[in-house]
């Protein structure tokens, strides 16, 4: 088996999930200049909601595709409600406050969501009931499953759809205008509060899709899983250039590939001292390198806002 090719494939699949989560960070940062630390936890809620739906429907005889669609729909709905509520209750009142205030609030919201989830679902790991038997496909020395293919294709479709939406739709244009200058956007007739709320809707819905993918991919969920996933996705957003939507996609894929390759070779490189369970350090090495060497990320703003 070709480790290199194998890890690239695994990395792209993992990276496409990171990319979806990273979009939520980057869109909110773009429009509010706020790092929504609670976003990873919203993704966690999606995962746990999906697990619950699958548990409820398993044994109902419904085809897996229907069960997954139901899980995805429920997860998106719950996450949209949470995302919009958090924006309305926790962030909007602080819109004009010094930057530190919403940041601390975001951390508080993150903890609130985690422990609310712990109350609802408990603190133990929850596993996915038998639902899919992924068939494995061999390709040029690498092995992958049809599930991986579906995850990657769905993620790619969501990203392409989002890029199109932001570039070409009336609301997408209003989002970009609000991001550049909310006052002037208001003069054009844009209700910027609604555009900001809508940004949370989009970010939460896309994050929910990613949360369901994680559950299907790893078969596990846990009230604290949003922390690490969120940090990695945030790293991906910074790597791509926070605030830049295409950058978050690129950063996510890149981070997934870096992490997988590193995990594949870490045993050899360290002479067997470190195992692939140390893979998480690579995301943070990337974060530190980017922040030190190129804080604006790979696709950071090139044209200034000043006009």
């Amino acid at each position: 088996m070709d480790i290199f090719l194998q890890q690239i494939v695994n990395g792209l699949v993992l990276g496409s999930i990171y990319a979806l989560v990273a979009l939520g960070y980057t869109m909110v940062y773009g429009i509010l200049g706020l790092i929504n630390f609670a976003h990873g936890d919203i993704v966690m809620v999606a995962a746990l909601v999906a697990l619950t739906v699958v548990q409820l429907l398993s044994g109902s005889g419904l085809p897996p595709a229907v069960v997954i669609a139901a899980a995805m729909g429920a997860a998106m709905l719950v996450c949209i409600v949470i995302g919009v509520t958090v924006e309305r209750v926790a962030y909007r009142p602080l819109r004009r406050a010094p930057r530190l205030a919403p940041l601390i609030t975001a951390i508080g919201v993150s903890i609130l969501i985690q422990y609310s989830a712990a109350l609802v679902w408990g603190k133990q790991y929850i596993s996915l009931p038998e639902l899919l038997q992924p068939t494995s496909i061999a390709f040029g020395g690498a092995q992958f499953t049809d599930l991986q293919v579906y995850i990657f294709l769905l993620a790619a479709a969501v990203m392409a759809g989002l890029l199109w939406f932001i570039k070409s739709s009336r609301i997408g244009r209003a989002m970009r205008a609000t991001e550049q200058n909310p006052d002037i956007a208001g003069l054009m007739g844009v209700d910027t509060n609604r555009i900001i709320a809508f940004t949370f809707v989009l970010g939460s819905a896309i994050g929910a899709i990613a949360g369901v993918m994680v559950v299907l991919y790893y078969g596990l969920g846990h009230y604290f899983m949003g922390f690490m996933l969120g940090l990695k996705a945030f790293t991906a957003a910074v790597l791509g250039g926070i605030g830049n939507v295409a950058g978050a996609m690129l950063g996510g894929l890149l981070l997934g590939v870096i992490e997988s390759l590193a995990a594949g070779y870490i045993g050899d490189l360290s002479g067997g001292v470190l195992g692939s369970n140390y893979r998480d350090i690579f995301a943070f090495l990337v974060l530190i390198f980017v922040l030190v060497l190129r804080p604006s990320g790979l696709m950071g703003q090139r044209i200034s806002d000043r006009a």
Partner: peptide, 26 residues
């Protein structure tokens, strides 16, 4: 009521056409 603001306030990272489209947003 429309305002042409001091310092123009064009959306620098939108194209000219997109700026006009924003003007027609309503």
């Amino acid at each position: 009521i429309a305002l042409v603001p001091e310092g123009r306030g064009v959306f620098a990272r939108l194209t000219i056409e997109e700026n006009l489209a924003m003007g027609a947003y309503i």
